[in-house]
């Protein structure tokens, strides 16, 4: 009886964990939004995530079954029968070294392409290097964004025609874009959860980040690195426009930025 109780106790929790995990997407506790990434690289990251998840679930089930079986048989072993006196098995050790080793190496090497695509220039899409839309400067506790004047390129230093916005990053949708990420004070992290993109903003460094929003829309932009008491307040929006609207928006923004108020007077 006691033996059964404990067996069930150790059985129920992995079963429960698996059930809850299986229902996670349905209960909307999984990936944000509808669970589908809003960027192409996000889709690849999700694919890798699910691949590891599947491998892990199989290993999890396997080890839990082995453990439970071991518990069940070991606790029910008749008194008169002595425990199995074994110091180990060389062959078994080799097997359970080599097989997981191979799987782990596979996982490791399978990941490299996506990482290279995200972070290494030569492996990322060509547009991601040329289509530089803005400089994002993180500060306590907001995102200050600088765009070039429409028709001009973004320069490293602020230019007289530059446009500024706060907590709103406007980009054209459907094409890779690149931003320069800076920090004005402490360390922050540029995190687009629905696009699966994250990059720390390190004081003193200017880090290029590229991403692509598949569809026009608004996406959350938050800070993922502790930056002080207002860390949680660094909520902003990434707004992806259809390309032609984007041009218009930029022109409108320029007009607003250099507004002298006289038009309203009339």
């Amino acid at each position: 009886m006691k033996r059964l109780c404990w067996f069930l106790f150790f059985l129920i929790w992995p079963v429960l964990a698996l059930i809850v995990s299986a229902f996670t997407p349905r209960w909307n506790w999984g990936f944000p939004g509808d669970g589908v990434s809003d960027s192409p690289i996000g889709a690849e990251i999700d694919h890798l995530f699910y691949l590891i998840l599947i491998i892990c679930v199989i290993v999890f089930i396997g080890t839990q079954i082995a453990l439970l079986y071991a518990i069940w048989t070991a606790s029910g072993r008749p008194k008169e029968k002595r425990a199995w006196h074994s110091h180990g098995n060389h062959k078994l050790e080799l097997i359970w070294t080599i097989i997981p080793g191979a799987i782990l190496l596979f996982i490791a090497f399978y990941q490299m392409r996506v990482w290279a695509e995200f972070r290494i220039d030569s492996a990322s899409p060509e547009k991601a290097q040329t289509n530089i839309v803005a400089e994002v400067s993180a500060r306590q506790f907001e995102w200050r964004i600088r765009y070039p004047e429409p028709g001009k390129k973004l320069e490293k230093k602020p230019q007289p025609g530059d446009m500024y916005s706060v907590n709103e990053l406007h980009i054209p949708a459907g094409t890779p874009v690149r931003i320069y990420l800076r920090s004005l004070d402490v360390q922050h992290s540029f995190f687009l959860p629905t696009l699966r993109v994250k990059q720390d903003a390190v004081p003193g460094l200017v880090i290029p980040v590229w991403f692509e929003a598949k569809k026009p829309g608004e996406y959350p932009l938050v800070c993922a690195e502790l930056c002080g008491w207002g860390h949680y307040k660094m909520g902003a929006k990434l707004i992806a426009h259809p390309p032609e609207e984007y041009e218009q928006y930029m022109k409108k923004l320029h007009q607003e930025q250099y507004d002298d108020g006289y038009a309203k007077k009339k």
Partner: peptide
């Protein structure tokens, strides 16, 4: 909405 740049008054666009 816009915050005050250069101070701890942050933008509350969210």
């Amino acid at each position: 909405v816009e915050g005050i740049p250069g101070t701890y008054m942050a933008s509350f666009k969210m």
